[in-house]
Design a protein around this nucleic acid. Sequence first.
RNA 1: GGAGAGAUGGCAGAGCGGUCGAAUGCGGCGGUCUUGAAAACCGUUGAAGCGCAAGUUUCCGGGGGUUCGAAUCCCUCUCUCUCCGCCA
Length: 430
Amino acid sequence: MLQINYIRQNSAAVKERLALKHFADLSAIDRLLETDEQVRKLKTATETLQASINAASKEIGMLMGKGEKDAAEIKKQEVAQRKNTLQDLSQQLADAERSLHDELVILPNLPHSSVPKGKTPEDNEVVREGGIKPILPATAVPHWDIIKQYDIVDFETGAKLTGSGFPLYKGKGAKLQRALIQYFLDYNIEAGYTEYLPPLLVNESSAYGTGQLPDKEGQMYHATADNFYLIPTSEVPLTNIYRDEIIKETDLPLKMTAYTPCFRREAGSFGADVRGLNRVHQFDKVEIVQIVHPDNSYQVLEEMVVHVEKLLQSLELPYRILRLCGGDMSFASALTYDFEVYSAAQQKWLEVSSVSNFETFQTNRMKIRFKPASPADRDGDNKTQLLHSLNGSSLALPRIVACLLENNQTTKGIALPNILHTYFGAATID
RNA sequence: GGAGAGAUGGCAGAGCGGUCGAAUGCGGCGGUCUUGAAAACCGUUGAAGCGCAAGUUUCCGGGGGUUCGAAUCCCUCUCUCUCCGCCA
């Protein structure tokens, strides 16, 4: 959620930034500022009245104490009248505040100055590419055929158990998942991230905190009997660990990692994109999250990008890094880098990671703040400030698996990259 | 699932319907003392908002109510703990 103070002071810039994100209704900003004006007027009026009532109540207490009952009675009547007005005013204030919140919460985050113009994925900017695209034999097939050949993922039985998009991993397929998860976690921990194993269901406040609610409700599975949501990513529980906390500056940065299954309803998706492991309702992902000082967040973002890049390099997969254009970015992000790996058999790029800086968009909702350590070394005061939050996949498994299978297929089986041999307990899947 | 107890500041823990944003202790920060440190002593120390300011409002788990006035009384929800039941 954007901060109203910022919008008030920078309305022209806000409009310009929102336009880059293709936010349709820029006049919403003017309406928002009007509502804000209204709220502040009502607030002043309400509080002045409340102050007079509080003062009168104290007087009544004193009069009662002195035994001057008649004088106290007169005061009571006065207060009763003012309370009528107060009720009216505070109702208006509550309405105005609700409108302000509703108008504010639908605004997406402002894109960073480096975000390229554009509306569709074609407008994303390729930052760099790495790895070597393999030259596959004529007999090469896509992963949905490979998994049948080696009997390692069974979609039909998954559909029987649950529904389509719930793969059943089997034998070496299951073990490959476990090997990748273990490797990714070890890699992240090595880089200073603390491992967590969070709940897979979260309450409404948590889903709201990271921005899944109110607008993306339909994307999550909802356990209605208890009003819990199945997490679409471990970003949700991880970031919410620090909801409503004021963090000591000396404890920064906070670096977290977790493996969890992720659940996505993916309502409305269709077509060739959804074949095999390309898009599923339940998948495994290892996530990294950082909560950092606002001065460092873009440096940290670059570090996270390099972190993920090296991970992909270690898997010996051809990849590219994209800087997403305004139209392709997520609601909450200020700057996003997508990682794609090249699926040689499908002859297309598959997104395997998305690394974003949310600046204060999430932390404002969650009230994740810090108090500057020493007021003396800054010229301003030492008011608590919002921190910046960032996250990225490191990494999401299904498409990595798809590429590993497709790009490494040989007549003697799937030749796994060196780094996985120990984790998997073998060099090939055959 | 059943019965009971509880939720107060970073932590622990008081709190009679008015003088309570809240005693006290610990912790934190600053200082005195010290070559330095410890101890001792002194001071200071919650958050959010409105206002140019003076100031003022709100917050004692969440929501609602009683009252001129609620941390304190009532209702309700959530959570925690103890005991019982069930269970990997």
